[in-house]
Amino acid sequence: MATVKNNSAVTFHFTIKLKDGSVADSTHAAGKPAKLVIGDGSLSDNFERCLLGLSIGDEKSILLNAEDAFGLPNPDNIHYMDRAKFVGDSEVEVGTIMAFSGPDGMEIPGIITEIAGDSVTVDFNHPLAGQDVTFEVEILAVE
């Protein structure tokens, strides 16, 4: 039976849980598993190392520190914008997640964290940055 090794194409279901046990994300909800190639850089090295050696049908619970999951919050990812830039029907409220155009034209999500007068603070860090998480994985296919 094939086991996960470097350059393996792996299809798997995952559930990401926070410290309090709440589910942050799950492929089960969408009914569509994730697929990646080990070593392609889409996951942290530590997370990939935890998958090595697993076979089809294996289930594993992996505790990841923030650095190995979604990284630590980067102060450079917090931007201050003029409230006048927010036009249209969308409400500008703390906690709102909005899509912004990045320098490369790609859309990047930002969460509004503070509004002070005409200044709106937007955090472009991943919503799970700085949090330790548990990944529960179930290996469906290894090619």
Rank of each mutant, 00 (worst) to 15 (best):
T3R: 14
V4W: 01
V4I: 10
V4A: 03
V4M: 10
K5W: 01
N7A: 12
N7K: 14
S8N: 08
A9T: 14
T11W: 03
T11K: 08
T11E: 09
F12S: 00
I16F: 03
I16D: 00
K17Q: 09
K17E: 01
L18N: 10
K19R: 09
D20L: 04
G21V: 04
G21A: 05
S22C: 05
S22K: 14
S22W: 04
S22P: 00
V23P: 04
A24F: 04
A24R: 07
A24S: 08
H28N: 06
H28C: 10
A29N: 11
A30Q: 06
G31D: 05
G31Y: 08
G31P: 10
K32C: 07
P33N: 09
K35W: 00
K35F: 02
L36N: 02
V37E: 12
V37L: 08
I38R: 03
I38A: 01
G39Q: 13
D40C: 08
G41S: 12
G41R: 09
L43A: 10
S44D: 12
D45L: 12
D45A: 13
F47G: 01
E48V: 02
E48D: 05
R49M: 05
R49H: 12
C50L: 06
L51Y: 02
L52G: 07
L52Q: 13
G53K: 02
G53R: 11
G53A: 11
L54P: 02
L54T: 00
S55W: 03
I56V: 13
D58C: 09
E59N: 06
S61F: 07
I62Y: 13
N65S: 14
N65W: 12
A66F: 13
A66Y: 10
A66L: 13
D68S: 15
A69M: 10
F70L: 12
F70P: 02
G71C: 13
P73W: 07
N74T: 14
N74P: 09
P75T: 08
P75R: 11
D76P: 05
D76W: 15
N77C: 15
